[in-house]
Design a protein around this nucleic acid. Sequence first.
DNA 1: CTGGCTAAGTGACCACAATCACATAATAGC
DNA 2: GCTATTATGTGATTGTGGTCACTTAGCCAG
Lengths: 233, 233
Amino acid sequence: MQVTPELLSAFPSLKPLPAATLARLAQESLVRKFARRGVVLTAGVREEFVCFLFEGRLQGVDFTIDGREVGLYFVEPGDFCGELGMFDHGPQPEFVIALTAVVTVFVPMESLRQVTFEHPMLLKLLGERLAARVRQLTRQRSLLGLPNISQRVCCQLWMLVPEDARQNLNASVINNPPTHMEIAIMLNLSRETVSRVFQILQTRQIVRRDGTSLLHVSDTPTLKRLAEGSEEL
Amino acid sequence: MQVTPELLSAFPSLKPLPAATLARLAQESLVRKFARRGVVLTAGVREEFVCFLFEGRLQGVDFTIDGREVGLYFVEPGDFCGELGMFDHGPQPEFVIALTAVVTVFVPMESLRQVTFEHPMLLKLLGERLAARVRQLTRQRSLLGLPNISQRVCCQLWMLVPEDARQNLNASVINNPPTHMEIAIMLNLSRETVSRVFQILQTRQIVRRDGTSLLHVSDTPTLKRLAEGSEEL
DNA sequence: CTGGCTAAGTGACCACAATCACATAATAGC
DNA sequence: GCTATTATGTGATTGTGGTCACTTAGCCAG
């Protein structure tokens, strides 16, 4: 499918680039759609594209030696993944799976590398992005240190709450929330345990499910306190 | 203490730089020694130095909301840490603690930034290094997914075994091995549990302690099988 | 040599999350 | 619509690692 420069400029990391550059990148990029559960990036392979997420939600996952699934991070629309090879030409370290039907734009790494020569600004952006990834992985690792299981779930949920709702503590909606299983592998928990925590959260009217693609966060202040551990579930 | 260009060129990441550049960097750098348990880098602070490790072993640690210690990574001699701010000017995300008495070289970030303009090669190196950090964090995260506790410990031990011994499966020595506690926080385990696993490893003559600063790995092939899960402890 | 301190070893106990085994929704596909 | 499939809810059971409470060993300073 055809990629327009306008589509590319929808991504904050590409937006600052001049129109001409975007036009060139657009020509070499391709829109790829994946169904739920589709494998967007494969671990161990030298992917030659950076994957920009336009719509839906992705999850980076790895597998332990004994085949157990491990959740690493979520990717939200506007963000991208698979950029590690930009820096070291190494293989993609983890799988990236579509949690919902997704629309992505694949931009060839080699073209992006070209652009970084002409526009160091992009290089800077990529560096900042990678740094952000390290910070995120670190935060997620700390989460796993929490001995209290419901706090762990609430923290993870908290990170999915939209930015402005986290600030103003107003009610909000999480779009395409991960399934219990997908949350479980992020937190080293069993699916059942996550289910039980959600059960309590729903009974206490802190969150409310609305179909499969919406999760209402009604009582944001309480969720915050639960995530911070100042209140027990 | 005075830093010589020769000292700087002992670090693989700086070695390729021209002598003149190294001389300038050396002038602005400082040697800092820390005792065991010394705080080398502080979380939340905008550290204005990249810390190169000359001798000893460092550990990146974070704390959960409820004050529990979490181990993130080890730093070996020749490597460096605290470079995240080079990319995004953000604060240091985690603490870095000296596990042994250490000798470090602190190079001012601003000087390093200057050098990256003149020598894009350094920029490339830093990028590769950051990518390596992401790969390492990812691997460590997968480790935590292992349901079998002794396998987790053996995997971690395996990563501490010198490169060539891992290749050739010959006996080797781990210098300044982390304490049980330090391993425990890396693996989300209690100190006692790590102690019990080591007890079995020693009884089965797979490893042998030799004072506080040496750990002999006698049966490398078995350790490898234990780490891979093809053998149970 | 002798305290003092930190690291490591070990048993007893038990809370708690994993697992198993289902039931029941809720979707998606036809 | 109806069926197949995936997601979720829930009880019963149990294994396992955490915690506690010590002891023992090793190391360093004076």
